[in-house]
Simulated scan of single mutants.
Amino acid sequence: MTDSVLRTVVRRETHSPRTGAMLLVVVLLILAAVYAAVEIVLALTGRQPLLVAPAAAVEALAALPMTVAPAGLIAAGAVIALVGLVVFAVGVSPGRLSRHEMAWGDRAVVVDNGVVASALAQHVSTASGIARENVVVGVAHRAVDVTVRPPVGVPVEAERLRQIVEDEVASYRLSPSVRTRIRVDRPRDAGREDPR
């Protein structure tokens, strides 16, 4: 498998398509077109419009600059432009899946964040001697959060724990890289974050 093919496969496995957002926009455009077509057909057959007749809508649109204050038109234009920018940004920016690329020799594998969290928690438990159920690890796109809850009376060296976590995360060679945050929650000071 060539490098370009491998990069393409990794990108597809770590990024989500914007199919949902595109489908929503297409459905809204179709509904608007169907509504306009129904109003035109009703006007051509001489029936009452659902909301507004096409001729009345065109007249109201033409008279809009005379009937609405310039500030209102500017505000409406700004809102429409903002909605357009949001739709454009959603369409262009890639979605993220809860996965990372991990270097494995000269190859790359895609691993789920849950697998990384489980492996890291097991390693921290084994290396520190703290029971596995007292180690909680969360992995996000750019961060790893490790919380250790040692039993009462069990001493924990925060610096040694930090070194264990950082060495293990570095050995995974994750892309994109992540920063680590380590907390030691003891019964008397639960919730206090270990300073970095």
Rank of each mutant, 00 (worst) to 15 (best):
A76D: 06
N113K: 00
I74F: 03
V90D: 07
S98W: 06
P151G: 01
F88K: 04
E133D: 15
V79E: 08
A143I: 12
V137L: 05
T147F: 01
V135N: 01
S118F: 08
A121N: 05
L73A: 02
W104C: 11
G91A: 08
V152E: 03
T147L: 13
E133Y: 01
P94G: 14
M102N: 05
R99E: 08
N134K: 03
F88R: 11
V90L: 15
V124T: 11
H100T: 06
A108E: 10
A71E: 12
R96L: 15
V156F: 03
V156R: 00
V136N: 08
N134L: 02
N113I: 01
A140Q: 11
H141N: 11
V115C: 00
L97V: 07
W104E: 15
A121E: 04
A158I: 09
H100E: 06
V137Y: 06
H141P: 00
I80V: 15
L64P: 01
A69C: 00
I74K: 01
G91V: 02
V87Y: 00
L64H: 08
I80A: 12
V136Y: 03
L82S: 13
D112M: 07
E133C: 00
G91C: 04
V144F: 03
D106R: 10
N134G: 13
V109R: 11
V156Q: 02
V139Q: 09
T67G: 06
F88C: 13
A131K: 07
P70M: 00
A60Y: 03
E133A: 05
N113C: 09
